[in-house]
């Protein structure tokens, strides 16, 4: 099935569909109402997960193509404005261990690189005109024509630089999730991650997992 729905819309569809389904299953309205909202929920969920919309097809609309990369959250995740001057960002990158390992100097003091599972990532620093902040942009091997997944989550790097830690709710308490809640808890993140990735490069998927496990490892180390 050809994809014709933009990533942004797909995520919105999953959210809307999931919500409709959740509310249908939990509500005590008459079955006639529930079957309508339930069917709508499933349809939205399907549209989001597959990225294919029959209505769009019949109308010859294709937001998947039209939006291209500019609408995907990946791009947003590939740059960050750090609340530290470039010297401090540079010294962090040269001296501190991150969940992904250590960065090293490349080209000049405005470029740093890190190798993760055979892929080289480059961070490009530029000072903000206010003199206090630093814009960092993430690039990768030019020869990779495909855009990799959001493997190096630059936002987390930003948090680490600014606060010394990465926000987390890993393992916090909650009550009984029930079947729907557990579904969303188990697959919600995965769904989101898979929707956010523009291409399904198997090796970068692996990178993602490595990164996540690096992160929890670091957290564990910090507490030992």
């Amino acid at each position: 099935m050809e994809k014709n729905v933009a990533t942004f819309e797909r995520i919105a569809s999953v959210l809307v569909g999931g919500l409709a389904l959740q509310q249908t299953l939990m509500s005590n309205r008459p079955t006639s109402v529930k079957s309508v909202t339930g069917a709508a929920g499933l349809a939205f969920l399907w549209r989001g997960v597959t990225g294919s919309c029959p209505i769009y097809r019949s109308l010859n609309i294709n937001t998947h193509k039209a939006n291209g990369i500019s609408m995907t959250p990946n791009l947003l995740e590939r740059s960050a404005l750090i609340n530290l001057p470039p010297e401090e960002v540079a010294s962090f990158l040269q001296t501190k261990k991150t969940p992904w390992g250590r960065f090293s100097l490349a080209i000049d003091e405005y470029h740093y690189k890190i190798d993760i599972d055979g892929r080289t990532w480059m961070l490009e620093l530029s000072g903000h005109s206010d003199g206090n902040r630093t814009l960092i942009k993430l690039t990768w091997n030019e020869q990779d024509s495909l855009v990799p997944e959001r493997v190096l989550e630059i936002r987390k790097l930003k948090s680490l630089m600014e606060t010394g830690e990465i926000a987390s709710i890993e393992g916090q308490p909650h009550g009984d999730r029930g079947p729907i809640g557990s579904f969303f808890e188990t697959f919600g993140d995965k769904l989101l991650h898979s929707l956010q990735s523009r291409t399904a490069l198997p090796d970068s998927k692996k990178d993602n997992e490595t990164m996540i496990s690096h992160e929890s490892e670091m957290r564990r180390e910090a507490h030992a």
């Binding site: 509310q23 939990m26 509500s27 606060t163 010394g164 830690e165 990465i166 926000a167 987390s168 709710i169 890993e170 393992g171 916090q172 308490p173 909650h174 009550g175 009984d176 957290r219 910090a222 507490h223």
Partner: peptide, 23 residues
Amino acid sequence: LTWQGIDKVGIEQVADPKIINGS
């Protein structure tokens, strides 16, 4: 107190919270 569904909350026994980050 946990949310259980539309217009429904309840008291549940859950795990105690733990320190996750240093702060």
